[in-house]
Simulated scan of single mutants.
Amino acid sequence: MSAAEDPRALDPDYDSHGGFPNFEPATPGPGFGRFLTAMRRAQDLAVSADADAATWDRAAELAEELAGLLGPFEAAEGVGPANRVPSLPGAGSLLMPPYKVVIFESDGVELEVEFSRFSVGGNYAVHGGVLPLLFDSVFGMVIHAAGRPISRTAFLHVEYRKVTPIDTVLTARGWVREVEGRKAFVNAELRDPDGNLLAEANGLMIRLLAGQP
């Protein structure tokens, strides 16, 4: 990245706005990837299983045991590996649907993303409220890829074109449409394997001033 593209050249306080942590890649070991895979499956089953009372009691015991195991290791933002392992789906964050970054360039980003049963809103379609979460994350990646300083979402508008399916690899794209000083107007879209437009979004990302959280 050249000096002209370095956000620190535009913003000397880039690393300290609002106390944002510096998210360096984490290397937690293969157990973390196995843990995420199991947890994603557990999330799907938590919203789809129809077990008997004894099984739910046992599941609760195991969940409580897991919470007790990990409780002593709770860490501050930017310290734990979640969201800091680019090689894992969703960068290692259970908050996000599993995605893989395919393109990360100054003129735009592209992701492959696959929703599962956990994200269903009804009739096996992805819940409408999940898509803004995806688009907001895409916007953040777009800003970073474009070399813009740390920014916050001022608004995000989503238009739903078709039902978004689960268990299908979809393509999400995002790019900066226009820049006006601290403002970056961004666009994003989500398409199915046949190229059909499922949803599109536009938003405004505003560069933080010194001291803004």
Rank of each mutant, 00 (worst) to 15 (best):
E5P: 00
D6A: 04
R8V: 11
L10I: 07
L10E: 10
P12T: 07
D13N: 13
D13W: 11
D15M: 11
S16M: 10
H17P: 03
G19S: 02
F23C: 08
P28V: 05
G31Y: 03
G33V: 05
L36Y: 08
L36V: 05
L36I: 05
A38E: 13
M39W: 09
R40L: 08
R41V: 11
A42L: 15
Q43E: 14
L45R: 15
A46E: 11
V47G: 06
V47E: 08
S48P: 08
S48M: 06
A53F: 04
A53V: 10
D57M: 08
D57S: 13
A59P: 00
L62D: 11
L62I: 10
E64V: 05
E64G: 12
E64A: 12
E65W: 10
L66Q: 01
A67F: 10
L70G: 05
G71R: 15
P72K: 07
A75F: 04
E77V: 13
V79P: 00
G80W: 03
A82Y: 08
V85H: 03
P89G: 01
G90Y: 01
A91N: 14
G92W: 04
L95M: 10
P97R: 06
P97D: 04
P98D: 07
Y99V: 06
V101D: 06
S106W: 02
G108P: 03
G108F: 00
E110F: 07
V113Y: 05
R117V: 14
F118W: 15
F118H: 15
V120G: 10
G121P: 02
G122R: 13
A125K: 12
A125D: 14
G129Y: 02
V130T: 14
V130H: 02
L131A: 08
L133Q: 13
V138C: 08
M141W: 13
I143P: 01
S151Q: 02
A154W: 03
F155M: 11
L156F: 04
V158A: 08
V158K: 00
V163E: 12
T164E: 03
D167Q: 12
T171K: 05
R173D: 06
V176P: 03
V176M: 09
R177N: 14
V179F: 06
V179N: 07
E180Y: 10
G181I: 04
R182N: 06
V186N: 01
V186G: 07
L190T: 04
R191P: 00
D194P: 05
N196K: 12
L198D: 01
L198W: 02
L198N: 02
A201I: 08
L209Q: 15
G211A: 10
G211M: 01
